[in-house]
Design a protein around this nucleic acid. Structure first.
Lengths: 145, 145
DNA sequence: TTAAAAACATGATAAATATCATATAAAAAG
DNA sequence: CTTTTTATATGATATTTATCATGTTTTTAA
């Protein structure tokens, strides 16, 4: 459904949101290490995000990536849209060319509502919201342990 | 999420359910044509289904595929499980090795309920139910038109 | 009993994804 | 100003997935 590139992108962006600041940028190698992702592939992906202005990057020593306050107001949907082609979600789940409400494939009525729900979650939640939610859940788990 | 093989398998099985009988078997080429799927690839996939006893096949002239009454009591889940490795759904959506309730990835709480719901639909609906539901919806659309 | 029609088996090719490698450019620190 | 660190750009390789091709076997019907 999602390519690995966009999965990695989401993970990296949310990691940056919770851990990097303009003063404490984080390099792509560090991120790859922490999240156990292939470093060169992640680096490439992050450059796409930079190019589209979804994250900030600074070269040189103490350089790295971070998200500005405005960047954090973007949604996960936009991250995906940058890396993948988001229109692929609107294609028929079974890959049939003619698939619509009028001419549905066999799993149309099963799949479409699910897809919409997931996409809406991605669309309606800002990166900041998602990152803080994650941090909260994580903290909760630490307490429970 | 699903491989094309299992998507094609689902489409083909539901097509067979609605259109083939023991007396009127349907060949893989016909199915591929009707559903606009790559014929050799579909043929290969259907052989896997046959091998696991999920559909019936008969060789020779007027041979082809069909589902017995018992076959139709299976679920879509079993079709997927035959073609894909179903355990891949339980892997972390972001591909992280350590991902669980105690140690969730950033989209864990978003993705897991979604996945479970989808899988439950696949598990709880028999092929027959799904096929008749589809036929009904399709007929409805024809009337509306 | 023979020809044709279909499934079955196996492997080859192609396309898409993902990963890795190398060289360049920029910026900060001493 | 030079060295070091990091991003950037580009392209090469590898892996996975999907597709295609060929030959064999089985079965039915004439």
């Amino acid at each position: 459904m999602l390519s690995k590139a966009s999965k990695y992108a989401i993970a990296a962006v949310l990691y940056l949101t919770n851990n990097a600041t303009k003063e404490q940028k984080i390099g792509s190698k560090i991120i790859a290490e922490k999240l156990e992702l292939p470093a060169p592939f992640l680096a490439k992906t992050m450059q796409e995000l930079t190019k589209k202005g979804l994250i900030k990057s600074v070269k040189g020593p103490h350089g790295g990536f971070y998200l500005s306050k405005k960047d954090k107001e973007n949604t996960v949907y936009e991250i995906i849209d940058c890396v993948d082609d988001i229109t692929k979600f609107d294609q028929c789940y079974l890959g049939q060319s003619e698939c619509s409400e009028e001419n549905p494939c066999v799993v149309h009525y099963l799949y479409v509502p699910f897809k919409n729900e997931l996409l809406n979650k991605f669309k309606n939640k800002t990166i900041l919201e998602m990152a803080t939610e994650f941090a909260k859940n994580n903290k909760l788990n630490e307490i429970i342990k």
